[in-house]
Design a protein around this nucleic acid. Sequence first.
DNA 1: ACCTGAACACCGTTCAAGT
DNA 2: ACCTGAACACCGTTCAAGT
Lengths: 180, 180
Amino acid sequence: MSTTAETPRRSLHQEQIVDAALALLDEGGIENLTMRRLGDRLGITAAALYWHVSSRQDLLVLAADTVWGRTALPGIQDLPWRRTVLEMAENLRSMLLRHPWLLTAMTIQALDGPARDRYEEHLRAVCETSGLTPRDAEQAVHSIVTFAIGAALAATPRPYVSFGLESIIDGLAARRPTGC
Amino acid sequence: MSTTAETPRRSLHQEQIVDAALALLDEGGIENLTMRRLGDRLGITAAALYWHVSSRQDLLVLAADTVWGRTALPGIQDLPWRRTVLEMAENLRSMLLRHPWLLTAMTIQALDGPARDRYEEHLRAVCETSGLTPRDAEQAVHSIVTFAIGAALAATPRPYVSFGLESIIDGLAARRPTGC
DNA sequence: ACCTGAACACCGTTCAAGT
DNA sequence: ACCTGAACACCGTTCAAGT
């Protein structure tokens, strides 16, 4: 009835569309997401999707940020900072392994949405709280995210992943005033 | 005239096709490589391409290995091993930045061909020659390749790349009997 | 041995038209 | 406000038929 109720209604529809798109992506990768197939699954014409979403690319951007948003963020002070950083790296890597189409999408266009920003911001906060300078915390975010993404894309086996991450964390720790 | 001359003739044709495919890929990314467009550029029907190549995927595999093969391999003992490893990582990263479609292709299917094997073999040899155990040299290959691929995909800025690579190399050096 | 033409089963996107 | 139908300009791949 009220005018303010209209916007949420519309984004509800969009949420259903993004959920269905995510299902198609997880089932068969990026080439499985087709406007016609997505329409079929929602009982709608492919053309009708363009009322809710501006393009297939737009849909991929929305799907990407949705998935970033589902990556768990551990408590900032619950564990020693090294363990927390390791956990965040592992969460990111396993998220990318569960949704390989996200790697494909990232290679086609830069995908930074609010949920990714939130993840990186959290990682930086973990490092700063632990005594790293802001500069080194920024270093940490870039190095850890880079390695986690690389590990997912290269399908790097587990033990090799741990070694690389721990080397990077050691490199960061060496820069703290207190040392380790 | 001789029967032995036939095989090279055919792969010459294939080489021209792969070169033209590479041009399309470098110009406009993976979605710019179209059988019809590639045919046009070679003065041939799209259907005719299937005589030389079994599918578009096959063409991508051939293009990928061609590009791996063009990555320069530095001399094994010309520089201190750390510098050589850094150089190989940088060569890989800049190759991937020059051919971003290769990252896309890697996310869609595993792409290990002879040229990639050769690159990784060389990197392992550099590490083993420097005194790393075979196990640690294997660690080195995985960590360095993982990080270089991640840096290309995440578009990690230069200084952050150096820090990550050097941390990994420090971690490797610490495992040598002689220390650093 | 190598290539064409036509066909099949698809794509993303637009847009007039309906309700 | 939301959806359909038809259309446009594309795709990869197959296959009979040509030379």
